[in-house]
Design a protein around this nucleic acid. Structure first.
Lengths: 215, 215
DNA sequence: GTCTATAACCGGATAGAC
DNA sequence: GTCTATCCGGTTATAGAC
């Protein structure tokens, strides 16, 4: 489950050929296993032997496919951003051209939250790991995320220029607040809390209109 | 710096006598050092030797004051919630009795954000560590945080019952969204981003009124 | 490509001197 | 109370058989 994402869209996962050899598929199986375990146990709590077990092999065998634990983790994280970014771009492109900027913003919130809560272990693992990994990986990851951040900035800037959102608030504060609230959901969300779509709807409502009742 | 918080208000930090013996002060020095290092390096990245160095002693000496690494971390986290909760209660109590529920909510947002960004390494370390520590500590910590969560629920419920905030949104989604956005700030905030007060003002504005301009 | 075995390396924890 | 020295367990990483 949850392994239906396409790797290789950007970031650290970009250099591989698109082939589908046996080795290539094993490699993917390992990455999927790593994303799953990392998402659940975090960086400190994840042993290579845990990942190997889920992938159905011995810990030592991982080294045929990856040069180190760090390299494996870094690739999971690179894939994480790539997946969300790709889905977001696809979803935005699929909106009717007459969709308002507010609609586009709402769609972005929904996509990000669903990807992170339900769709991709890569995405949720990546968010969780951001504050846990060693400096080298972290730096690389921040570079990976630049394009994604740009997407959000664009969305907000366009909306503001069109007069669809307020002009008196700091754009980067807006972005940090929105994405922050979405990212933090990985810390508390359980499927019993209901479908991510419902939570996304409430979040959109709050982001756009706030808690104060319109009179 | 940043060591001006009062421990012992609640949670794991509660059993100690309020004394100020040499041993007591050393213990506090170690806790302060631990909070500082944990906040910066996270659970996985923090060595006992790092903490010892900051506290000005050898790693082995820590064991005179704490029974294990886990015990030390758990106490930092217990203090973290206690600090924020105490400050919040004090700030709310200091508001004029005629303050609106929305004002109280705004104050809560401000206090939480400032505590977490500028005032307390215990608070920021605690937030960062939540998703990183082993299950036993995590469980204990969730218990520690129950009272603090109750405070927020109360704040929102009162505001809703008074008709000061909308009745059509899930209360717990509101709480998760607000606190989540605040907590996530520890992941991105740097002092160059400006004073926490400014960020708090923008956050309050967004939470209360949303991004859509009032007509 | 994957296995088994083991090397090499920490880092937490303990013991005993001072 | 703190130091130095050391033990001990666990984990990454490597070597060589299959």
């Amino acid at each position: 489950m949850r392994s239906d994402e396409l790797a290789g869209a950007a970031g650290a996962a970009a250099e591989r050929p698109p082939g589908d050899s046996k080795s290539e598929r094993t490699r993917r199986r390992i990455l999927d296993a790593a994303a799953l375990v990392l998402r659940r146990k975090g960086y400190a709590g994840t042993r290579l032997s845990d990942i190997a077990k889920v992938a159905g092999m011995q810990a030592g065998s991982l080294y045929y496919h990856f040069s180190s634990r760090e390299a494996l983790v870094a690739e999971v994280m690179g894939t994480g951003v790539a997946v969300v970014q790709a889905q977001m771009q696809a979803a935005l492109a699929a909106l009717p051209p007459e969709a308002s900027h507010r609609n586009r913003l709402a769609a972005a919130i929904e996509i990000h939250l669903i990807a992170v809560l339900e769709q991709s272990d890569y995405a949720s693992a990546t968010i969780k790991l951001l504050g846990q990994v060693p400096k080298d990986i972290q730096k690389q990851q921040l570079a990976n995320e630049r394009a994604y951040g740009k997407l959000w900035r664009q969305l907000l800037r366009d909306a503001r220029e069109a007069g669809e959102i307020r002009g008196d608030l700091n754009l980067s504060a807006m972005r940090m607040m929105i994405v922050g609230a979405l990212n933090w959901a990985v810390e508390w969300y359980h499927p019993e809390d209901g479908p991510a779509e419902q939570i996304a709807r409430d979040f959109v409502e709050m982001v756009l209109h706030g808690l104060v009742p319109r009179r």
